[in-house]
Design a protein around this nucleic acid. Structure first.
Lengths: 134, 134
DNA sequence: CAGTATCCCAGTAGATACTG
DNA sequence: CAGTATCTACTGGGATACTG
């Protein structure tokens, strides 16, 4: 296999792709970020992340736990208490994710402008195709 | 709004989440990586990325173009030729994506192990619940 | 060659209700 | 409180066929 200009093999792209499909879903990153400052209980986690359903929080947490990014601790009290916290691996993940986040923050304006431009020209194109309707 | 330990606001998390949902799909990153070394034509792009359907390549490229990450250039030859290349923004995106990729590469072993552990204990738990069946 | 449109299946996520 | 199960709606993505 021939490395590209960055010394990356094609197979590396697959690895990137794989990890992205793992954390690229709607909630994983949000959960990891929320656990940055310390452990949180299920319900607290759900509060602080707006808009996540009971089911999705449960499902996503199990996925993160399975991949060793999050630890689940059950306190056998009544009513039961369950705490979630980041593992070492989970904490380490935050670094590249933050890098991506900073890129996003830095460039969200440009992306927004690009979209406006694109959508505007798409409308123009549509008008050229449908000059007389309405 | 209160910054977390990294000086990030909760709204930043949304921005991260948003960009991730943009590039976190199955193909975007793969396409960006393939365009690293220079422009490629539609069919060439499709060849080098294994397994992508005609439709998805088209759809994903349009999305990347809309966000200003990719440029589409049409050469009015017969048969028509269309070249895709990264914009400046597209090239800049590669940096944080590579960082994530390197994290993925570095830790894929750990993740794999964590999964094996998790799955093994899940099976054990299942066995405890179903001791006599089969 | 490049791209769009249509059809269709499968996986995903929400709402709701129930259990330990 | 934490979590699972079910049912349903929506969407993503593949196959195919057609157009500039």
């Amino acid at each position: 296999m021939k490395p590209d200009t960055n010394g990356h093999l094609p197979s590396d792209c697959r690895a990137i792709s794989e990890i992205l499909s793992r954390i690229g879903d709607k909630w994983s990153v949000l959960i990891v970020m929320r656990l940055t400052d310390g452990p949180l209980r299920f319900s607290k986690l759900r509060e602080t992340i707006g808009g996540i359903s009971h089911k999705m929080l449960s499902t996503t947490l199990r996925g993160l736990e399975r991949d060793g990014l999050v630890t689940r601790t059950v306190y056998p009290t009544i009513p039961p208490q369950v705490e979630y916290s980041l593992t070492q691996l989970g904490h380490e993940l935050r670094e590249p994710v933050n890098a991506l986040g900073e890129w996003a923050l830095r460039n969200q304006g440009k992306i927004h402008e690009a979209r406006l431009r694109y959508d505007a020209s798409a409308i123009d194109a549509a008008k050229r195709n449908l000059p007389k309707t309405a």
